[in-house]
Design a protein around this nucleic acid. Structure first.
Lengths: 356, 356
DNA sequence: CTGAAAGCGCTTACAG
DNA sequence: CTGAAAGCGCTTACAG
């Protein structure tokens, strides 16, 4: 007779099966909710697994099934990212997990070391098959990661557009709408010299934003002036720098639109140092509403969006591109421009007198 | 004769071996740098792998070797965390990766969904064997995760102390030193009513900080007054709330020490709204130096540390607790109190007149 | 120095 | 409804 005591080493499915005195096949089927299992058997298996703390070894499952049930979210921990981490990804993560939990998929964040090429890192992670699908972000104007993933036929979705590859799935913020509404609002209050900030890197959103701004100006009959596009880092420090450069311009702009949420903090500081008060001497419109920008005085006009909802949409878009889940998400757009809603603050609440 | 063309589907080691017309065992040995391989053979294998983009499937390796070569960093994406994400983990991550890269270990971040119990989540991740070792953080006064990891004999290290379990490996910030130096500095300038903020949660650092503060007061002959311990969320909003509560106290404190880096932003705002100027009417000492707190006016007195170096120490401590790497890190402390250096700002740069 | 073979833990046709 | 067996991709004793 077989011993039925609690095995000292509850390693794998074999020990669990022995303990229950049934085959490992049945244990597996019971655990995985397969239909052809006696309900009483299933109950016993589930109870024993719970009691002994058995959870299937993921390597075994992955090897057999050819899938890992893991979705990777690649993030970059560059120095710039580190210094200016905002809550963008943590917020999006909640939405993603909400969607993935429906299918027992786990989200893992893959932080690319700052000293490794992002494309090489991604290639390595993909080739090792630790994830079934990838989410990438911070898309560059030309982004080799997109070609890599397309060629490798790994399901993926991007946060941000790119010129690379053809029609890949992406979701991106409505930079066009932001530029348009900001310029419209400022133009309506008499502003003609409207500056913007833009990232100094090759990140694609910079290109999109500058182009949108140019078109918005055109619409209001304002000539585009390249010297009013201030290229700085996306950080508080960048905001400080931007303010500094604005102050150096002869014929100073009367308004500025910022592309990154935390930039307003540094810009306010630098302006205040020069006795220039946002909302009185200079109209400022920020980008995404951020907790720490909410404490600025005067309050910042900016744009609001739900990171959680963006995460939901992103997650569903990704699943719609995975063979195993495609049919469950038939109506997902492949490309989504995510809208932002204007939050009226005091930082642009004044009118410019008409120039003579 | 075997075809030697580039296989259409470069899946596994078998295809690579066929392509080279040698056995998979030799391919594996060559790829893994085993000594008993002809150098010419190794060269060919490496070249072919590179050319065909072969990287070993991690599930296969893990299953065979019983290890995943992955270290997990558990993070929590609670609403509070999301709204107030600071750069703590991104900074530490760089240091961790630097250490792990020496041993070809990859760091993956495991974000615990906000609606899942952290302990259950951790149990699931550990049982599925996706990681060889774990780093946990945000340790609670009583933290079941520590018992879980200890019992499961999973190598781990914690950022933060806890009352749970016995002598587990941890690294923690020097809250004692911060409290002591802050109180000392304030006492030297004549302050006797010194408030502090503390987290409203059960996170262990709150207990450590309050106790350190109490001892520091004692040292300077100042009686401890529980009503001067303001319990608020660790966020800008919490700072705003703390300021609000300070203003409601009769016999208002003349100084406040903040436990969380971003709290100063909200506190400044609320104080300014009431015409109270930090550094003139109220002495403020912040906690960790943060990029966005650098733009406060008047500049904030606070404490500085290197997240990167902390990550290095944490990574080495973890490896010292993993059987496979133990002997390489013999001199790692099991418990480290990480020092912070005072950064003198203007926010506490005034003296209190002696009370009569 | 290389090859053939076992086996890591699992899931899943296939029999019965 | 259950069991026996194959096999996912790899690494590693073991022979030779």
């Amino acid at each position: 007779m077989r011993t039925k005591g609690k095995p000292s080493s509850m390693r794998g499915i074999r020990q669990l099966a022995e303990h229950l005195d049934i085959s490992i096949g049945t244990v597996s089927r019971a655990l995985n909710g397969k239909p052809d299992v006696n309900e009483e058997t299933r109950r016993r298996v589930l109870a024993a697994a719970e009691e002994l703390g058995y959870v299937a070894n993921q390597s075994g499952r992955s090897l057999r099934q050819g899938e890992t049930k893991v979705i990777g979210l690649m993030i970059e921990s560059s120095q710039e990212a580190v210094e200016n981490a905002d809550n963008f990804f943590l917020g999006v993560t909640s939405g993603l997990q909400h969607v993935f939990a429906r299918h027992k998929l786990d989200l893992l964040m893959l932080p690319c070391p700052s000293d490794e090429d992002p494309c090489e890192y991604l290639k390595r992670m993909v080739a090792r098959r630790v994830v079934d699908a990838m989410i990438i972000s911070n898309t560059q104007r030309i982004d080799r990661r997109i070609d890599l993933l397309s060629r490798a036929r790994i399901p993926f979705a991007a946060v941000g557009r790119s010129l690379s590859a053809g029609n890949f799935p992406w979701i991106d913020l409505d930079f066009e709408g932001v530029a348009e509404r900001a310029v419209e609002r400022l133009a309506a209050r008499g502003h003609r010299r409207i500056a913007i900030t833009a990232p100094s890197s090759e990140v694609n959103l910079g290109y999109v934003f500058v182009e949108s701004y140019r078109r918005a100006l055109e619409k209001h009959g304002i000539p585009f002036n390249p010297s009013l596009v201030i290229r700085v880092k996306s950080s508080e420090q960048g905001g400080y720098q931007a303010a500094h450069e604005l102050l150096l311009l002869e014929d100073r702009p009367t308004a500025v639109v910022l592309i990154y949420e935390l930039m307003a903090i540094g810009l306010y500081r630098r302006m205040m140092e020069s006795g220039i008060v946002p909302g009185r001497d200079l109209a400022v419109i920020g980008f995404r509403d951020a907790p720490r920008a909410r404490f600025l005085q005067p309050s910042l006009s900016c744009f609001r969006m739900s990171l959680y909802d963006l995460g939901i949409a992103l997650g569903e878009m990704l699943l719609a591109n995975m063979p195993a889940y495609r049919e469950l998400y038939p109506d997902c757009g492949r490309n989504i421009i995510w809208p932002l809603e204007l939050v009226q603050g005091e930082s642009d609440a004044f009118e410019i007198e008409a120039m003579v």
